[in-house]
Amino acid sequence: MTLASDDKPRWTRKHLLSLEELSADEIRVILDQADAFKEVSTRSIKKVPALRGRVVVNAFFEDSTRTRTSFALAAQRLSADVIDFSEKTSSTNKGETLIDTARNIEAMGVDVIVVRHGAAGSAHYLARTVKCSVVNAGDGAHEHPTQGLLDVYTMRERFGKIEGLKVAIVGDIANSRVARSNLWALNKLGAEVILVGPPTLLSRSFEQLGARVVHDFDSIIGEVDVINMLRVQFERVKSSQFPSVREFTRLFGLTWDRFQRCKKDVFIMHPGPMNRGIEIQSDIADGPQSGILQQVTNGLSVRMAVLYLVTSLG
Protein backbone atom coordinates (compact mmCIF):
# COMPACT_ATOMS: atom_id res chain seq x y z
CA MET A 1 0.00 0.00 0.00
CA THR A 2 1.26 3.47 -0.79
CA LEU A 3 0.79 6.28 1.62
CA ALA A 4 0.22 9.83 0.54
CA SER A 5 1.94 12.51 2.52
CA ASP A 6 -0.25 15.21 4.07
CA ASP A 7 -2.44 16.78 1.43
CA LYS A 8 -2.62 20.51 1.23
CA PRO A 9 -6.20 21.66 0.70
CA ARG A 10 -6.71 22.76 -2.86
CA TRP A 11 -10.37 23.65 -2.72
CA THR A 12 -11.10 27.37 -2.63
CA ARG A 13 -14.69 27.69 -3.82
CA LYS A 14 -17.65 28.66 -1.71
CA HIS A 15 -20.16 27.54 -4.35
CA LEU A 16 -20.57 24.71 -6.81
CA LEU A 17 -22.34 26.29 -9.75
CA SER A 18 -21.04 24.54 -12.85
CA LEU A 19 -18.39 22.11 -13.99
CA GLU A 20 -17.44 24.42 -16.83
CA GLU A 21 -15.67 26.73 -14.40
CA LEU A 22 -13.78 23.99 -12.52
CA SER A 23 -10.26 22.89 -13.34
CA ALA A 24 -9.39 19.23 -13.83
CA ASP A 25 -7.63 19.30 -10.45
CA GLU A 26 -10.68 20.70 -8.71
CA ILE A 27 -12.83 17.95 -10.20
CA ARG A 28 -10.29 15.38 -8.99
CA VAL A 29 -10.40 16.86 -5.48
CA ILE A 30 -14.16 16.30 -5.40
CA LEU A 31 -13.86 12.75 -6.74
CA ASP A 32 -11.14 11.88 -4.22
CA GLN A 33 -13.19 13.36 -1.39
CA ALA A 34 -16.15 11.30 -2.55
CA ASP A 35 -13.92 8.22 -2.22
CA ALA A 36 -13.29 9.12 1.42
CA PHE A 37 -16.98 9.72 2.09
CA LYS A 38 -18.09 6.49 0.46
CA GLU A 39 -16.73 4.59 3.45
CA VAL A 40 -19.06 6.43 5.84
CA SER A 41 -22.08 4.81 4.21
CA THR A 42 -20.67 1.35 4.95
CA ARG A 43 -20.45 1.86 8.72
CA SER A 44 -22.92 0.55 11.24
CA ILE A 45 -23.59 4.17 12.23
CA LYS A 46 -23.72 6.02 8.91
CA LYS A 47 -23.12 9.50 10.19
CA VAL A 48 -20.17 11.80 10.86
CA PRO A 49 -20.27 15.10 12.77
CA ALA A 50 -18.51 17.23 10.12
CA LEU A 51 -21.43 19.64 9.51
CA ARG A 52 -22.98 19.53 12.97
CA GLY A 53 -24.86 22.76 13.62
CA ARG A 54 -24.91 23.73 9.95
CA VAL A 55 -28.14 24.18 8.01
CA VAL A 56 -28.66 23.00 4.43
CA VAL A 57 -31.76 24.10 2.50
CA ASN A 58 -33.08 22.12 -0.42
CA ALA A 59 -34.76 24.76 -2.58
CA PHE A 60 -36.36 22.94 -5.49
CA PHE A 61 -38.47 24.92 -7.93
CA GLU A 62 -38.71 21.91 -10.24
CA ASP A 63 -39.70 18.33 -9.59
CA SER A 64 -37.04 15.99 -8.37
CA THR A 65 -37.08 12.79 -6.42
CA ARG A 66 -33.64 11.35 -6.54
CA THR A 67 -31.51 14.50 -6.47
CA ARG A 68 -33.48 16.06 -3.64
CA THR A 69 -33.47 12.87 -1.58
CA SER A 70 -29.80 12.33 -2.29
CA PHE A 71 -28.84 15.83 -1.15
CA ALA A 72 -31.01 15.53 1.96
CA LEU A 73 -29.48 12.20 2.93
CA ALA A 74 -25.95 13.47 2.17
CA ALA A 75 -26.50 16.48 4.43
CA GLN A 76 -27.93 14.27 7.17
CA ARG A 77 -24.99 11.86 7.01
CA LEU A 78 -22.78 14.88 7.68
CA SER A 79 -25.02 15.78 10.68
CA ALA A 80 -26.32 19.01 9.11
CA ASP A 81 -29.92 20.09 9.68
CA VAL A 82 -31.94 19.96 6.47
CA ILE A 83 -34.86 22.13 5.47
CA ASP A 84 -36.94 21.32 2.45
CA PHE A 85 -38.31 24.17 0.43
CA SER A 86 -40.20 23.17 -2.69
CA GLU A 87 -42.25 25.39 -4.90
CA LYS A 88 -43.34 25.21 -8.47
CA THR A 89 -42.13 28.20 -10.42
CA SER A 90 -44.64 30.73 -11.57
CA SER A 91 -43.79 31.14 -15.22
CA THR A 92 -44.30 34.91 -15.22
CA ASN A 93 -41.97 36.10 -12.47
CA LYS A 94 -39.23 33.55 -12.03
CA GLY A 95 -36.64 36.15 -11.07
CA GLU A 96 -38.71 37.72 -8.36
CA THR A 97 -39.71 34.42 -6.88
CA LEU A 98 -36.11 33.36 -6.65
CA ILE A 99 -34.93 36.56 -4.96
CA ASP A 100 -37.76 36.59 -2.47
CA THR A 101 -37.22 32.99 -1.64
CA ALA A 102 -33.48 33.46 -1.26
CA ARG A 103 -33.93 36.36 1.13
CA ASN A 104 -36.42 34.46 3.20
CA ILE A 105 -34.19 31.44 3.33
CA GLU A 106 -31.18 33.51 4.22
CA ALA A 107 -33.05 35.22 7.03
CA MET A 108 -33.32 31.81 8.65
CA GLY A 109 -29.55 31.66 8.93
CA VAL A 110 -28.61 28.86 6.58
CA ASP A 111 -25.16 27.78 5.45
CA VAL A 112 -25.88 26.10 2.10
CA ILE A 113 -28.70 26.51 -0.42
CA VAL A 114 -29.07 23.60 -2.81
CA VAL A 115 -31.09 25.01 -5.68
CA ARG A 116 -32.88 23.56 -8.67
CA HIS A 117 -34.62 25.97 -10.96
CA GLY A 118 -35.98 25.92 -14.50
CA ALA A 119 -34.02 28.99 -15.57
CA ALA A 120 -30.45 28.59 -16.80
CA GLY A 121 -28.08 30.69 -14.71
CA SER A 122 -30.34 30.80 -11.66
CA ALA A 123 -27.73 29.26 -9.37
CA HIS A 124 -25.12 31.82 -10.45
CA TYR A 125 -27.67 34.55 -9.91
CA LEU A 126 -28.46 33.27 -6.45
CA ALA A 127 -24.78 33.01 -5.53
CA ARG A 128 -24.38 36.70 -6.27
CA THR A 129 -27.40 37.57 -4.15
CA VAL A 130 -26.83 35.60 -0.93
CA LYS A 131 -23.96 35.29 1.51
CA CYS A 132 -24.19 31.55 2.09
CA SER A 133 -22.90 28.76 -0.17
CA VAL A 134 -24.93 27.80 -3.23
CA VAL A 135 -24.91 24.36 -4.84
CA ASN A 136 -26.50 24.02 -8.27
CA ALA A 137 -28.81 21.00 -8.42
CA GLY A 138 -29.85 21.76 -11.99
CA ASP A 139 -30.54 25.07 -13.72
CA GLY A 140 -32.68 24.76 -16.82
CA ALA A 141 -30.84 23.12 -19.69
CA HIS A 142 -27.54 24.61 -18.49
CA GLU A 143 -25.81 22.35 -15.94
CA HIS A 144 -26.37 19.70 -13.30
CA PRO A 145 -22.89 19.57 -11.81
CA THR A 146 -23.39 16.88 -9.15
CA GLN A 147 -24.88 14.55 -11.78
CA GLY A 148 -21.86 15.13 -14.01
CA LEU A 149 -19.58 14.44 -11.06
CA LEU A 150 -21.32 11.26 -9.99
CA ASP A 151 -21.27 10.04 -13.58
CA VAL A 152 -17.52 10.51 -13.96
CA TYR A 153 -17.01 9.11 -10.45
CA THR A 154 -18.91 5.96 -11.44
CA MET A 155 -16.92 5.66 -14.69
CA ARG A 156 -13.66 6.11 -12.79
CA GLU A 157 -14.72 3.45 -10.31
CA ARG A 158 -15.48 1.05 -13.15
CA PHE A 159 -12.45 1.67 -15.38
CA GLY A 160 -9.89 3.00 -12.90
CA LYS A 161 -9.40 6.18 -14.90
CA ILE A 162 -11.22 8.61 -17.15
CA GLU A 163 -8.37 9.49 -19.47
CA GLY A 164 -8.70 7.79 -22.83
CA LEU A 165 -12.27 6.55 -22.33
CA LYS A 166 -14.70 6.91 -25.21
CA VAL A 167 -18.07 8.01 -23.89
CA ALA A 168 -21.27 8.31 -25.90
CA ILE A 169 -24.03 10.51 -24.54
CA VAL A 170 -27.23 9.69 -26.37
CA GLY A 171 -30.60 11.33 -26.78
CA ASP A 172 -32.05 14.77 -26.28
CA ILE A 173 -28.78 16.68 -25.94
CA ALA A 174 -30.21 20.14 -26.58
CA ASN A 175 -32.45 20.05 -23.54
CA SER A 176 -30.02 18.20 -21.29
CA ARG A 177 -28.09 19.81 -18.46
CA VAL A 178 -26.78 16.35 -17.64
CA ALA A 179 -25.14 16.16 -21.07
CA ARG A 180 -23.46 19.56 -20.64
CA SER A 181 -22.09 18.81 -17.18
CA ASN A 182 -20.86 15.41 -18.34
CA LEU A 183 -19.24 16.95 -21.39
CA TRP A 184 -17.29 19.51 -19.36
CA ALA A 185 -16.09 17.01 -16.77
CA LEU A 186 -15.17 14.30 -19.25
CA ASN A 187 -13.32 16.71 -21.52
CA LYS A 188 -11.31 18.15 -18.66
CA LEU A 189 -10.37 14.69 -17.42
CA GLY A 190 -9.24 13.55 -20.86
CA ALA A 191 -12.08 11.37 -22.16
CA GLU A 192 -13.40 11.52 -25.69
CA VAL A 193 -17.06 12.51 -25.79
CA ILE A 194 -19.39 11.55 -28.61
CA LEU A 195 -22.80 13.20 -28.55
CA VAL A 196 -25.50 11.24 -30.33
CA GLY A 197 -28.99 12.45 -31.23
CA PRO A 198 -31.28 13.69 -33.98
CA PRO A 199 -30.19 16.95 -35.65
CA THR A 200 -33.18 18.78 -34.15
CA LEU A 201 -31.98 17.94 -30.63
CA LEU A 202 -28.23 18.11 -31.27
CA SER A 203 -26.78 20.93 -33.30
CA ARG A 204 -23.28 21.04 -34.78
CA SER A 205 -22.47 23.89 -32.36
CA PHE A 206 -21.65 21.28 -29.72
CA GLU A 207 -18.47 20.57 -31.66
CA GLN A 208 -17.18 23.91 -30.41
CA LEU A 209 -17.44 22.55 -26.87
CA GLY A 210 -15.05 19.77 -27.78
CA ALA A 211 -17.38 16.88 -28.58
CA ARG A 212 -17.87 14.72 -31.65
CA VAL A 213 -21.40 15.17 -32.94
CA VAL A 214 -23.01 12.11 -34.48
CA HIS A 215 -26.56 11.61 -35.75
CA ASP A 216 -26.26 7.92 -36.48
CA PHE A 217 -26.11 5.89 -33.26
CA ASP A 218 -25.22 2.68 -35.08
CA SER A 219 -22.11 4.22 -36.61
CA ILE A 220 -20.33 4.49 -33.24
CA ILE A 221 -21.98 1.71 -31.25
CA GLY A 222 -19.04 -0.68 -31.46
CA GLU A 223 -16.29 1.76 -30.46
CA VAL A 224 -17.42 3.26 -27.14
CA ASP A 225 -16.57 2.19 -23.58
CA VAL A 226 -19.50 3.95 -21.96
CA ILE A 227 -23.01 4.71 -23.19
CA ASN A 228 -24.85 7.29 -21.14
CA MET A 229 -28.52 7.23 -22.20
CA LEU A 230 -30.37 10.43 -21.47
CA ARG A 231 -33.96 10.57 -20.43
CA VAL A 232 -36.40 11.70 -23.10
CA GLN A 233 -37.76 14.82 -21.47
CA PHE A 234 -41.33 14.92 -22.67
CA GLU A 235 -41.96 18.04 -20.63
CA ARG A 236 -39.21 19.98 -22.43
CA VAL A 237 -39.36 18.71 -25.97
CA LYS A 238 -41.35 20.74 -28.45
CA SER A 239 -43.17 18.42 -30.77
CA SER A 240 -41.66 19.86 -33.94
CA GLN A 241 -38.12 19.02 -32.77
CA PHE A 242 -39.00 15.61 -31.58
CA PRO A 243 -39.65 12.62 -33.78
CA SER A 244 -42.40 10.25 -32.75
CA VAL A 245 -41.58 8.11 -29.74
CA ARG A 246 -41.46 5.00 -31.92
CA GLU A 247 -39.11 6.65 -34.35
CA PHE A 248 -36.90 7.88 -31.51
CA THR A 249 -36.64 4.39 -30.03
CA ARG A 250 -35.86 2.92 -33.43
CA LEU A 251 -33.09 5.43 -34.16
CA PHE A 252 -31.67 6.27 -30.73
CA GLY A 253 -32.99 3.76 -28.22
CA LEU A 254 -30.60 1.28 -26.61
CA THR A 255 -32.25 -1.84 -27.92
CA TRP A 256 -31.13 -5.41 -27.45
CA ASP A 257 -29.98 -5.51 -31.06
CA ARG A 258 -27.73 -2.47 -30.57
CA PHE A 259 -26.47 -3.71 -27.22
CA GLN A 260 -25.19 -6.88 -28.86
CA ARG A 261 -23.06 -4.83 -31.22
CA CYS A 262 -21.38 -2.96 -28.32
CA LYS A 263 -17.92 -3.65 -26.92
CA LYS A 264 -17.95 -6.69 -24.66
CA ASP A 265 -17.26 -4.66 -21.49
CA VAL A 266 -19.41 -1.65 -22.41
CA PHE A 267 -20.75 0.25 -19.38
CA ILE A 268 -24.34 1.43 -19.54
CA MET A 269 -25.46 4.51 -17.64
CA HIS A 270 -28.61 6.56 -17.26
CA PRO A 271 -29.22 9.56 -15.00
CA GLY A 272 -32.80 8.51 -14.30
CA PRO A 273 -35.69 8.52 -14.14
CA MET A 274 -35.81 6.03 -17.01
CA ASN A 275 -38.47 5.68 -19.66
CA ARG A 276 -38.17 1.93 -19.91
CA GLY A 277 -38.73 0.68 -23.41
CA ILE A 278 -38.22 4.13 -24.93
CA GLU A 279 -34.59 5.24 -24.59
CA ILE A 280 -33.44 2.04 -22.94
CA GLN A 281 -34.67 -1.53 -22.96
CA SER A 282 -35.56 -2.80 -19.51
CA ASP A 283 -33.38 -5.89 -19.39
CA ILE A 284 -30.31 -3.84 -20.40
CA ALA A 285 -31.00 -1.31 -17.67
CA ASP A 286 -31.27 -4.10 -15.12
CA GLY A 287 -28.45 -6.18 -16.58
CA PRO A 288 -24.93 -6.85 -15.34
CA GLN A 289 -23.31 -4.13 -17.44
CA SER A 290 -25.60 -1.43 -16.15
CA GLY A 291 -24.17 1.06 -13.65
CA ILE A 292 -27.47 2.80 -13.09
CA LEU A 293 -27.92 1.91 -9.43
CA GLN A 294 -24.21 2.48 -8.71
CA GLN A 295 -24.76 5.98 -10.07
CA VAL A 296 -27.45 6.55 -7.43
CA THR A 297 -25.28 5.10 -4.64
CA ASN A 298 -22.28 7.16 -5.70
CA GLY A 299 -24.43 10.28 -5.92
CA LEU A 300 -24.66 10.22 -2.16
CA SER A 301 -20.87 10.14 -1.65
CA VAL A 302 -20.33 12.84 -4.27
CA ARG A 303 -22.92 15.13 -2.67
CA MET A 304 -21.43 14.59 0.78
CA ALA A 305 -18.07 15.61 -0.66
CA VAL A 306 -19.56 18.69 -2.31
CA LEU A 307 -21.38 19.84 0.82
CA TYR A 308 -18.22 19.29 2.88
CA LEU A 309 -16.04 21.19 0.42
CA VAL A 310 -18.24 24.24 -0.13
CA THR A 311 -18.48 24.73 3.64
CA SER A 312 -14.79 24.03 4.14
CA LEU A 313 -13.55 27.58 3.81
CA GLY A 314 -14.32 28.31 7.47
Partner: peptide, 22 residues
Protein backbone atom coordinates in the same frame (compact mmCIF):
# COMPACT_ATOMS: atom_id res chain seq x y z
CA UNK B 1 -9.04 9.52 9.39
CA UNK B 2 -10.30 11.85 12.11
CA UNK B 3 -10.83 14.96 9.99
CA UNK B 4 -14.63 14.76 10.17
CA UNK B 5 -14.54 14.46 13.95
CA UNK B 6 -12.24 17.33 14.82
CA UNK B 7 -13.69 19.82 17.27
CA UNK B 8 -11.90 22.72 15.59
CA UNK B 9 -13.36 22.20 12.10
CA UNK B 10 -15.25 25.49 12.18
CA UNK B 11 -12.26 27.43 13.55
CA UNK B 12 -9.21 26.40 11.59
CA UNK B 13 -9.97 28.21 8.34
CA UNK B 14 -9.81 25.97 5.30
CA UNK B 15 -10.69 22.45 6.32
CA UNK B 16 -8.26 19.69 5.44
CA UNK B 17 -9.29 17.19 2.82
CA UNK B 18 -10.71 13.95 4.10
CA UNK B 19 -8.97 10.68 3.36
CA UNK B 20 -10.54 7.26 3.56
CA UNK B 21 -11.02 5.46 6.82
CA UNK B 22 -10.57 1.71 6.57
Amino acid sequence: DITLYRDDLSEIGPKPLVRPTA
